[in-house]
């Protein structure tokens, strides 16, 4: 097993190298440069500043030299500075992580705690009224655009009822609040975003669990359990449920990179300082260093997520073993 993990980890290196080359090439091939963003169209800003900026940012060098410079810094874990404001890229990313991570984890917890019961119950009562209604509801949730729901909920809970804040993550007077006041303020601000970002995810997870559960319920060992005279409850939750959850491990592994991904629309609607907005703006501004750092971060998380899923799978499912095929 240890052998297997080491081999997988070593395998990540060439893969990462390939990813950086391809992404570096793609973003530099996109027309436009960071320097074109510095000026807005006012004639008082002289035009030879563009050449000056290009020189300062190394943009006048050939692409492979630029990549080489980037790679040298990257190996020492230095992602460089943002071309937009000269701040260290790593600082810009780190300050965005808490908000994005908190909302995504809370949303994932909410999604799982709602979709698992929905999935299990609708599978066990397949074809029932509950099954049909829940299916319709989760699909409506899936189909509704999140920005639209967000605005409606803001209008209701914040403008009409005044129960919740409209946007942002902290109140203007956050610094002056007590410790518990701060926590309460954060929770207050998180309710709407977490709720809205969960709605879309419900459909996928609950349908997935329902499907797995149905498959498991049709297995001969379930029939055997029923024949033994076990109660419905025992059959469902002791024998079927754990096996239906197995494939979920893979899905959770795949959602690891998603935990640090954000949506621009969602973040701008709620005025949240998240990763999505940062990445979007970086792309629009051709902020090469920042884009590369985000790409690398995403790639590493994806690969680690897959690896963790594979390892976890081996533990929870005794039928799967890696690296010792002889046995």
């Amino acid at each position: 097993m240890l052998n297997y993990i080491i081999r997988r980890l070593i395998g990540i290196i060439p893969l990462l190298f390939g990813i950086t080359i391809i992404s570096f090439a793609i973003i530099h091939l996109a027309p436009g440069e960071p320097t074109t963003q510095q000026e807005f169209m006012t004639p008082r800003i002289s035009s030879d500043t563009r050449a000056r900026l290009a020189r300062l940012y190394d943009l006048d060098k050939p692409l492979h030299i630029q990549y080489w410079h980037w790679l040298k810094r990257f190996i020492c874990l230095d992602f460089g500075r943002s071309l937009a404001d000269g701040r260290r890229v790593i600082d810009k990313i780190l300050e965005r992580i808490p908000v994005t991570l908190t909302i995504n984890i809370l949303a994932l917890v909410l999604i799982l705690s709602v979709s698992i019961p929905i999935g299990v119950i609708s599978a066990s009562k397949s074809g029932s009224l509950f099954d049909k209604t829940s299916t319709i509801l989760v699909f409506i949730g899936f189909a509704l655009p999140s920005f639209w729901i967000a605005l409606l909920l803001m209008q209701l809970f914040s403008v009409k009822l005044g129960w919740l804040p409209i946007s942002g993550i902290k109140s203007l007077d956050f610094e002056y609040l007590s410790w518990s006041g701060k926590l309460l303020d954060l929770i207050h601000h998180l309710i709407l975003p977490v709720f809205v970002s969960s709605i879309g995810g419900l459909a996928g997870f609950s349908r997935y669990i329902r499907q797995n559960m149905l498959e498991v319920l049709s297995q001969p060992y379930i029939t055997a359990a029923k024949a033994k005279g076990l109660s419905r409850h025992q059959v469902l939750y002791r024998h079927a449920f754990p096996n239906a959850l197995l494939p979920l491990v893979t899905i959770l592994g795949l959602s690891v990179p998603g935990l640090l991904g954000g949506s621009v629309i969602f973040e701008s609607i709620f005025a949240l300082p998240g990763i999505g907005e940062l990445f979007y703006r970086a792309v629009m501004m051709r902020d090469y260093n920042l884009i590369m750092a985000e790409v690398v971060l995403g790639a590493i998380l994806t690969m680690l997520g897959n690896l963790t899923a594979d390892i976890a799978y081996a533990y929870v499912d005794p039928r799967i073993r890696y690296g010792d095929g002889s046995r």
């Binding site: 920005f147 605005l151 803001m154 209008q155 914040s158 403008v159 005044g162 409209i166 946007s167 942002g168 973040e267 701008s268 609607i269 709620f270 005025a271 907005e277």
Partner: peptide, 14 residues
């Protein structure tokens, strides 16, 4: 900073 025009307008309204 409120990047969305619609949200900004709601914040103004309240």
């Amino acid at each position: 900073v409120i990047p969305d025009q619609a949200t900004l307008f709601l914040e103004l309204q309240t």
